[in-house]
Amino acid sequence: MNRKNGITVCIIAIIAVVLIYAQSGISFGDPVYQDMDQYFLLNGQVQTGGNNICTDVVFDFRAFDTLGEATVLFTAVMGVIVIFRRLMKGEEYEAE
């Protein structure tokens, strides 16, 4: 058991160190390429009519992703409804 805990700690440490090392290669706040961000800032307000560029990106430029995220939430709700439908009723087995 102790050996497994040691391995777990080692693995997590390795992943953390490598990820920190990897992201240190990217300059935060000053990316090499900025063209897509600039496009949103310059054209977002006029093209979509919204003052809030975040919402413009989320609901216009990437609205399809937002539909996907809303679907994820809907999936979670359906999952909860399905799983809890008989947990409390004492019926334990169900034929396929």
Binding site: T48, T55, F59, L73, V77
Partner: peptide, 23 residues
């Protein structure tokens, strides 16, 4: 202003309200 953005905002607002409450 905003075209369909406010419509979608309202839609998502209703969905999130109801979904989290149902859960």
């Amino acid at each position: 202003t905003g075209g369909v953005i406010p419509v979608m905002n309202i839609a998502v607002g209703l969905e999130v309200l109801a979904a989290l409450s149902v859960i």
